[in-house]
Design a protein around this nucleic acid. Structure first.
Lengths: 162, 162
DNA sequence: TTTATTATGTCAATATAGCTGACATATATA
DNA sequence: TATATATGTCAGCTATATTGACATAATAAA
């Protein structure tokens, strides 16, 4: 069956699977705590951060673009987006081909704030990358990408290769 | 079938850091959606899952053990734990040395339910491990462990080596 | 032995982030 | 002209967390 068995399958035992689950939980928790501290001072929350992040990464995306990417409802997005627009972090311009659309992008204030939020996570991730080394990082990406739903992998790949 | 990510030496640039951030976000989201579906049918939520998970992994732990591990308040835990005890998933016994403590462990019902929840995530993670291979998995662990707060690393190591 | 501390529990109020359902408007498409 | 789409809004509900105040029983320290 399996021609090239690189090593044993010991890494598929319950212990190793639980290790992944637990590391994912703890790492994700600490990783999200960095921006949370900054956000707490501004009256914004994680939901706002996610929108800022992905608008920054996808300038001139539409409302429905964000909805699909984040898999939330428009009612949820609305609360967050309205606040970000009112407070001058995001600006909306009507679509050029389709004027029903609202194209989203960060204002200068939004750019600056996203940069500040990003820098905390950048630092954490860069330190982890450096400590673990490039091959470990490649493995980290590979496993995470394969944890993503098959049906989402295309959209995620498009995102990370932007 | 397998999507190969470009192997890059310049793994500390903004692009690669954002890749990690995004993969972490999407993978974590999909990874938690598996148990969520089952939980939705029972009237329990993620918070209950976490408690079941870590009580299963640390039988006869105490209330404050769980509080420290999950970093939540006792008021938060209370809601969840009471429900799990009332519905027969967890049983509490007084501590042997210190009778103020409540030692927690899963009942048979709790064990069965945790197993069901775990199996969904096990499948997802095992598939990702298999696709990525043992070396990638080692890198995955290494990077995640280094993303964890320095101050938490000891406790996380103790957990995953149990 | 008295006092202080610890482990746990509870009540109340609040915040955040999501959801469903219903309805509205403007624009694009068939 | 009729229908579908992109977006927005109102209202109500849920899950998960927080802080603060107070209570009880058991252990540890004075």
């Amino acid at each position: 069956m399996q021609k090239k068995l690189p090593q044993s399958n010991l890494y598929l035992r319950e212990e190793e699977l639980r290790r992944g689950i637990e590391l994912l939980y703890f790492a994700y928790r600490d990783f999200t705590s960095d921006p949370d501290e900054i956000l707490a001072q501004t009256g914004l929350g994680r939901a706002h951060h996610r929108v800022l992040y992905f608008v920054r990464r996808n300038p001139d995306t539409t409302v429905s673009g964000i909805l699909k990417l984040l898999r939330i409802t428009k009612q949820s997005l609305s609360r967050v987006l309205n606040q970000l627009v009112e407070e001058g972090y995001i600006e909306q311009t009507p679509g050029t081909q389709d004027r029903r659309q609202r194209l989203l992008k960060l204002t200068e204030k939004g750019e600056a704030f996203e940069k500040e939020l990003f820098s905390t996570q950048r630092q954490r991730v860069a330190q982890a990358y450096k400590t673990a080394g490039p091959e470990a990082v490649a493995g980290f990406w590979e496993v995470l990408l394969n944890i993503v739903n098959d049906s989402d992998r295309e959209i995620v790949l498009r995102q990370i290769e932007k």
